[in-house]
Computed example of a mutant assay.
Amino acid sequence: MGSAHAHEVPEVPEELQAFTPAQVAALLQINIKTLYDRISRGEVPGVIRTGRALRLARPAIVAWLSAGDTARAPGARKRRA
């Protein structure tokens, strides 16, 4: 009938992978609500919105974490006083 490989999911290239907000909150060891607040303030890079779904581009998050400065995302807008 069907092939044994019929249900295999193709591997997604790293540059196209994305994290969920819950995954990034866990990586940062912060509450997910805190992450959403930081996203709304433009402090998190790689935000991808598709309808109501929100994802964070893996390469942008990895680079941000590797830089060690999670206080502000590179290129993030500055908050007004």
Rank of each mutant, 00 (worst) to 15 (best):
M1S: 15
G2P: 12
G2H: 07
S3G: 06
A4Y: 00
A4V: 02
A4H: 03
H5N: 09
A6Q: 10
H7L: 11
H7K: 00
H7V: 06
V9I: 15
V9N: 00
P10L: 11
E11I: 15
E11P: 07
E11N: 09
E11D: 13
V12M: 13
P13W: 09
P13T: 10
E14C: 05
E14R: 12
E15V: 13
E15C: 12
L16G: 06
L16C: 11
L16E: 15
L16N: 10
Q17S: 12
A18K: 14
A18R: 13
F19I: 05
F19H: 14
T20S: 14
P21G: 08
P21W: 04
A22K: 12
A22V: 07
A22H: 09
A22D: 15
Q23D: 12
V24K: 07
V24T: 07
A25M: 07
A25I: 01
A25N: 05
A26N: 11
A26D: 13
A26Q: 11
L27T: 00
L27W: 04
L28W: 03
Q29V: 03
I30T: 08
I30G: 00
N31E: 15
N31M: 02
N31F: 01
I32S: 06
K33F: 04
T34D: 06
T34E: 01
T34N: 07
T34G: 02
L35M: 03
L35W: 03
Y36A: 02
Y36H: 15
D37V: 12
D37Q: 12
R38I: 01
I39Q: 05
S40V: 11
R41Q: 15
R41D: 12
R41P: 01
G42L: 07
G42A: 09
V44N: 05
V44G: 05
G46W: 09
G46F: 10
G46P: 06
G46I: 10
G46Q: 08
V47K: 02
I48A: 10
I48D: 08
I48L: 14
R49I: 09
R49Y: 03
T50L: 12
T50C: 10
G51C: 03
G51P: 06
R52T: 14
R52C: 00
R52M: 06
R52Y: 04
R52A: 13
A53Q: 12
A53Y: 04
L54E: 04
L54H: 03
L54R: 04
L54W: 01
R55W: 03
R55V: 06
R55K: 11
L56D: 00
L56G: 01
A57N: 08
R58I: 01
R58V: 01
R58E: 04
I61G: 02
A63W: 02
A63E: 13
A63P: 01
W64P: 08
W64K: 04
W64V: 09
S66C: 09
A67L: 11
G68L: 10
G68F: 08
D69A: 11
D69C: 06
T70H: 03
T70I: 14
A71E: 13
A71S: 14
R72E: 10
R72P: 00
A73H: 01
A73C: 11
P74I: 03
P74Y: 06
G75F: 02
G75P: 07
G75T: 08
A76S: 14
A76K: 00
A76F: 00
R77G: 12
R77C: 07
K78N: 10
A81T: 13
A81E: 12
